[in-house]
Amino acid sequence: MNKHQQSFARLVTQSFSFFGYMLKNLPSIVFWGIRVKDIKLDSCHTTLPFNWRTKNPFKSIYFAALCGAAELSSGLLCKLHLAGNGNFSMLVVDMNAQFIKKANTPILMKCEDGRRVKETLAGLSKQGDVATLKTIIHGHDSHNETVAKFEITWSFKRK
């Protein structure tokens, strides 16, 4: 990890300023209580609690909260690889979700596509280059059973 990536990883896992940034720009993440458990160059794991803020009338986690935790997991992994590597824009251009099992315990979202993110960004060498990448995120309950699978496609453009 370069020094910018180390700083970014510290920021999202330990910093009160990251909480403030989320409160200002993505308040639903703060409301739902989503946290970054771990972030490395190869993976990002986020946690989503099962409580009154995330629960739907069917006594499971609201699908939008699950999607938010999944998007944060893959988005932060992409941002980690962008840190200190030039000026890029990124945007979600597609999303697919499969809800496999009722989510009624805390959920751990795992995006482990760091190598693929790095390869995709390496192909964007000159200004105006564009690429897309489909990231895969798996949501696991407290019994380590898969409750959901997400495919989030990101578009990147070198500025």
Results as ranks from 00 to 15, higher is better:
Ile136Val: 14
Gly123His: 12
Ser125Asn: 15
Val92Gly: 05
Asn85Ile: 04
Val92Asp: 09
Leu82Val: 06
Trp32Cys: 14
Lys101Met: 06
Asn85Tyr: 11
Met90Ala: 09
Leu11Phe: 15
Ser15Phe: 11
Val12Thr: 05
Leu41Asp: 13
Lys59Arg: 12
Val93Asp: 05
Thr132Trp: 05
Lys118Asn: 11
Asn104Phe: 05
Phe63Gln: 04
Gly123Cys: 10
Gly84Val: 07
Asp38Ile: 03
Pro27Ala: 10
Phe31Ile: 02
Cys67Asn: 09
Phe18Gln: 07
Leu76Cys: 01
Leu11Tyr: 15
Glu119Met: 12
Pro49Trp: 09
Ser7Asp: 11
His45Glu: 14
Cys111Glu: 01
Ala64Asn: 08
Phe16His: 13
Asp113Ile: 12
Ala70Tyr: 07
Pro106Phe: 02
Asn104Glu: 12
Lys55Asp: 01
Val36Phe: 05
Val93Ile: 15
Arg35Gln: 13
Ile61Lys: 03
Val130Asn: 09
Ser7Arg: 14
Ile136Thr: 09
Ser7Ala: 14
Ala69His: 01
Cys111Val: 09
Ser89Leu: 07
Ile100Met: 01
Ser74Phe: 10
Arg53Asp: 02
Ile136Arg: 01
Phe18Ala: 12
Asn51Glu: 11
Leu76Asn: 02
Ser43Met: 12
Ala131Cys: 02
Asn96Ser: 13
Thr47Gln: 11
Lys37Leu: 10
Phe18Leu: 09
Leu80Gln: 03
Arg53Ala: 07
Thr120Gln: 04
Ser7Asn: 15
Thr47Ala: 06
Thr120Leu: 06
Ala70Glu: 03
Val130Trp: 00
Lys118Ile: 09
Pro106Tyr: 00
Phe50Ser: 00
Ile61Ala: 04
Asn56Val: 09
Ser89Ala: 06
Leu48Phe: 06
His81Cys: 08
Phe19Ile: 11
Lys110Tyr: 00
Leu91Thr: 04
Cys44Gly: 02
Leu77Pro: 09
Cys67Trp: 02
Ala97Thr: 09
Tyr21Lys: 08
Phe31Gly: 08
Phe50Lys: 00
Pro49Phe: 03
Ser7His: 14
Lys134Leu: 09
Gly75Arg: 04
Leu124Ile: 05
Phe18Arg: 07
Lys102Ser: 11
Leu26Gly: 01
Leu23Thr: 06
Cys78Phe: 00
Lys101Phe: 04
Thr54Cys: 06
Ile107His: 01
Gln127His: 10
Leu26Val: 14
Ala97Ser: 13
Ala65Phe: 01
Asp113Thr: 10
Asn85His: 14
Gly20Trp: 15
Lys40Asp: 10
Leu72Met: 15
Ser43Val: 03
Leu23Gly: 11
Ala70Ser: 14
Pro27Lys: 11
Pro27Phe: 13
Ser15His: 13
Glu71Pro: 02
Thr105Leu: 00
Leu91Tyr: 08
Val117His: 07
Cys111Asp: 05
Thr13His: 08
Trp32Tyr: 14
Lys134Met: 12
Gly86Lys: 06
Asp42Met: 08
Ala69Ser: 13
Lys126Ala: 12
Lys79Gly: 03
Ile39Tyr: 04
Met95Ala: 13
Ser125Arg: 15
Gln127Arg: 15
Val30Glu: 03
